[in-house]
Design a binder for these strands. Sequence first.
DNA 1: AGGTGTCGGCTGCTGGAGCAAATATTGCGC
DNA 2: GCGCAATATTTGCTCCAGCAGCCGACACCT
Lengths: 176, 176
Amino acid sequence: MYTRRMQDRPLDDERLTLMGLLAETWASLSARGHAQLAGHGLAPAEFEVCLRLARSPEGLLRMSDLAAQTTLTSSGITRVVDRLVERGWVTRRSCATDRRTTYAVITDSGRALLDQVLPGQIELVESWLVEPLRASGALSDFERALRAVRDHAAPCATAGSDGAGLVPAQPEPAAR
Amino acid sequence: MYTRRMQDRPLDDERLTLMGLLAETWASLSARGHAQLAGHGLAPAEFEVCLRLARSPEGLLRMSDLAAQTTLTSSGITRVVDRLVERGWVTRRSCATDRRTTYAVITDSGRALLDQVLPGQIELVESWLVEPLRASGALSDFERALRAVRDHAAPCATAGSDGAGLVPAQPEPAAR
DNA sequence: AGGTGTCGGCTGCTGGAGCAAATATTGCGC
DNA sequence: GCGCAATATTTGCTCCAGCAGCCGACACCT
């Protein structure tokens, strides 16, 4: 397996199929998560920002660090935080020692929102990801494989927390 | 493992972390693929459409079947095919037996484009996904786990090919 | 035939996100 | 102290995708 036969066209390459399998799996899982978030009036990026803030030591993170940790650009973070501020889940706070930086801070209301949203999200992951993995006996294998790929590919997703504050060696919290 | 300890807040739930790991891995891999496609002037959805057409029995697929197979809506497919037609990689063909349906057909030029793009994409998957998996000895485990999740979660991604024409039991070809 | 319901694809409108330019603040060298 | 480069955030422009609405076409039923 995984040695291409000569008569195969690149079109049918096994590696392409594997990537497609991963794509399809991710698309399916994330779609379910997004649908549930939408029920709470939350866009995926908004949820991720709230979650990262809540997980942060003091519930606050610099705008540019948020950008580095997510797939959004700093411009995108500005808009997302705008929307979250409008709804009272996040506030901005200026930094005492560096007046260029702006912190995004999660509010009590924002934490309450997460308390309301998280159980459903966890339930979703449990039933659509963990459960089938356990049933096929591949749960720990899967996580190990995932870590192997991530460690090889991802540069450093813990920008701004000074390498600390988030779960060690498990920097990525969010369901996009 | 994978039994939540009582003192954990939902914020630090292991299942959320696992989902985050998957999210991060997918984000990293797809970003590399997208960057390479961009070098050929291709958007991810455009590449996926071309690939699915090329893999189709006669290089043609109905618009609505393309929509069903991708994450795009039929409206989105209309626009994507518009762009591909503009650049000569795809043409539209009306159906002889049902005048409502429109086929998207890949052109020779479109196939040539794929010949040019695919090797690089395969190379990317090889070095950033297959290689680390092989190194950690988790390659076959990973695919097995992925299939378990996909089979449990994905409804049916082979719409329009009448259940045939694509790789059996491996319906998802594309790197989005 | 004629009528009705459904399907397939295309078009106006809206919102989100990236890119690039603009603005603001800091730290450095003179 | 003052200009200058570097960094951080915001703002204008543009593209892309989804939603809702539309029309043409088919199928079924009477």
